[in-house]
Structure formats: C-alpha cells, structure tokens
C-alpha cells in the first residue's frame, strides 16, 4: 500500500528544510557587502511572492496577472504609515496591510472569479493596472512616480543583518505554512479544482468558493512579501503595482516549474541572481528573459525542478539497470 510511502515523502523533507535554513542563515556571514545582503533579501522575498502566486496557478489553475496589486498594498502599507506616522507604527502597518488585502481580495475575488479562464487573467491584470494608475496619480499622498524614500524601521530591525534574519524567518515560516496547505485536504481539493472542476461539484464542494479562498490566501502572502520589501531599501515605488511585477512571478514559476511546490522558489532564486548579474550589463533584460522563457515553455514545460527530477529519475533507472519506460506515462491519456 502506498500510504507509508506518501508519509515518508512528506516527512522526509526534514533534511531539505535543514539545508535550506542553514544556507540562508549563513548568508550574512559569507557575504562581504551590504549590497549582497540586499540581493539575498530580494531572493527570499521574491521566492515567497512566487510561491504564493503558484498556489493560484500551479495548484488551483488560476493564472492571475494581478498579484502585484497585493504586493504593492504590502509595500505601501509600510511606506505610507512609516512616512506619515513614524516607524513605531511599523508592526501596526503590517497588520493593517494584511487587513486591507483581506477585504480587498475578498471583494475583488467575488468579482473576478465569476469569469473563468483568460478572462479571469485579464480582469486581474486590469484591476492591478487600475491600482497602479491610482497610486501613480495620487502624487501628493503616494509620491507618484518618485515613490516613498527614507522608510526607517523600528528598533533592531534598523540593523541590516537583523532585518535580514527577520525577513528570512518570516519568509521561511510563510513558505512552510503554504507547503502544509498545499499537501492538506484543502490543497488536495484545490488541485481537484484545477484538474476537474465538474467532479469537484459532484463531491458536493463549491468550485468558486474554494477559488475565492485561495485567492485571498495567496493575496495575503503577496502582501507579506511586499511589506518585507519596503524595508530592504527603505523605499517603495509604484513599480510594485505595475503589471510587469505580476509578470515577473509568473516567469519565475514557469522557470522553476509550476507543478512542484518548490519550483517557483527555485525559479525566483535563479531569476533574481541572473538579473543581478546580467541586468547590470544590458538594458534589454526583458528581451533576454522573454526569449529564455519562450524556449523553456516550448522545450521544457516542466521547468528546472521538473527537468532535474526527470534527469534524476533517468540516472536512477540507468544505475538500477532498468530500461526507462515511457509507455506507462502515455497509456492513460487516450480517453
């Protein structure tokens, strides 16, 4: 029976988690400059953002092009509060941002989930762009195109290294929570919604209700990511709301592989690091990443993690002297 196997799969990740925590915990010790610490913060925050996004797309099958909206809410909740009220309100701002997202994503979700497929994607994009325009135009309040600078953090968080650990712990805990969710009964029904919504109705469950739930949850985690980003440079920018920010997490997810929980995480790490290295040398970064992802989608639809697992499976098969058999994979497709 497969149950014990499944259990060991879930618990066997202790080693992986240990390695992950250790790697990120050692960053401040190994890094030589403030700048590198910033890059590490970026990696972590984008990894959380991409992972939360993939709960929508890879898990539930809802390709949102508007998660930047909630990411921006997080950033500006911190930015506006600290700028206007002072840094002692930092944690209150964090909570206020989450509360705002809770209400907003619930209301918007009610609206956008009524339409499916590409229309859902485009509506999320439209609302994201609407928010961007509002932030852009309310110059006196939001700083418009200039954004808000000089966001100072309270107490120990003002120290870059402490802030890094604050980010690391929050991100890893958040990712852990999302992972629990992905493998829970709730996660299972979300995967069911993606694969066969009609069957889900015949399980006596509501498709849209579950879509709305994960839309709100993913948006809350995007807000956490945005709020953390505000402290990295001490500034927020309207770009946080811009549609390319939503696009970025989509690219990260695809690059890493949307059918694996850690795919988007890995994709985020790779993209931020490449962007950091290549971005300094060319202004045509979009052209490059656009071409890479295009080749990726056509040639390697399972992403980096999926590809790596395929290779590992093949190597294992060769080591065990078994012939790799593809026929079982295609046998059930002819329905």
């Amino acid at each position: 029976m497969g149950i014990s196997d499944m259990k060991s799969l879930c618990n066997g990740n202790t080693l992986g988690w240990g390695a992950l925590i250790l790697a990120f915990a050692l960053v401040p010790a190994l890094m030589t400059s403030q700048y590198q610490l910033n890059v590490a913060c970026n990696v972590l925050i984008w990894a959380l953002f991409a992972t939360s996004f993939n709960m929508l797309w890879g898990v539930t099958g809802m390709l949102s092009f508007g998660q930047a909206l909630y990411y921006g809410v997080g950033g500006y909740a911190i930015g506006l509060t600290v700028t206007y009220l002072g840094s002692q309100w930092y944690f209150a701002a964090f909570a206020a941002g989450l509360l705002f997202t809770l209400v907003l994503s619930f209301l918007l979700g009610l609206l956008v989930i009524r339409v499916g497929g590409v229309y859902y994607t485009m509506l999320t994009l439209a609302f994201g762009q609407l928010a961007w325009q509002i932030m852009f135009k309310m110059y006196d309040f939001t700083g418009g195109d200039d954004g808000l600078q000089g966001i100072t953090l309270p107490g120990l968080l003002a120290d870059k290294v402490y802030y890094y650990y604050f980010v690391m712990i929050l991100v890893l805990v958040a990712v852990w929570v999302l992972k629990r969710m992905a493998y829970s009964p709730f996660g299972l029904i979300l995967r069911g919604v993606r694969q066969n919504p009609n069957r889900v109705r015949f399980l006596g469950r509501r498709v849209r209700r579950n879509q709305l739930r994960i839309y709100v949850v993913a948006s809350l985690f995007a807000t956490v990511a945005g709020a953390l980003m505000a402290g990295v440079d001490g500034s927020v920018h309207t770009d946080m709301f811009f549609w390319t920010t939503s696009g970025e997490v989509i690219l990260m997810s695809v690059l890493g592989g949307i059918s694996h929980f850690f795919g988007p995480f890995c994709g985020a790490v790779v993209i931020i690091l490449i962007e950091d290295i290549v971005g300094a040398h060319t202004e045509y970064w979009s052209l490059l990443i656009g071409s890479i992802i295009m080749v990726m989608v056509i040639g390697f639809p399972r992403g980096l993690v999926g590809g790596a697992l395929d290779v590992a499976a093949k190597v294992r098969a060769i080591l065990q002297g078994e012939k790799h058999d593809d026929t079982t994979l295609t046998a059930g497709l002819g329905k």
């Binding site: 797309w57 497929g117 590409v118 045509y284 052209l287 989608v297 056509i298």
Partner: peptide, 24 residues
Amino acid sequence: ANEGGFQILLTYCLILIIDDLVKL
C-alpha cells in the same frame, strides 16, 4: 494540458520581446 495558461505565457514573452525590439 493547461494550454490556456501557456498561451498567455508565450504571448506574454512575446510582449517582452517586441517591447525590447522596438526600443532597440
């Protein structure tokens, strides 16, 4: 499978590429 999402993704890449080509 999931063709709709990948269509959007591919054409999104196309937006990025055309935007930069035009700039170029």
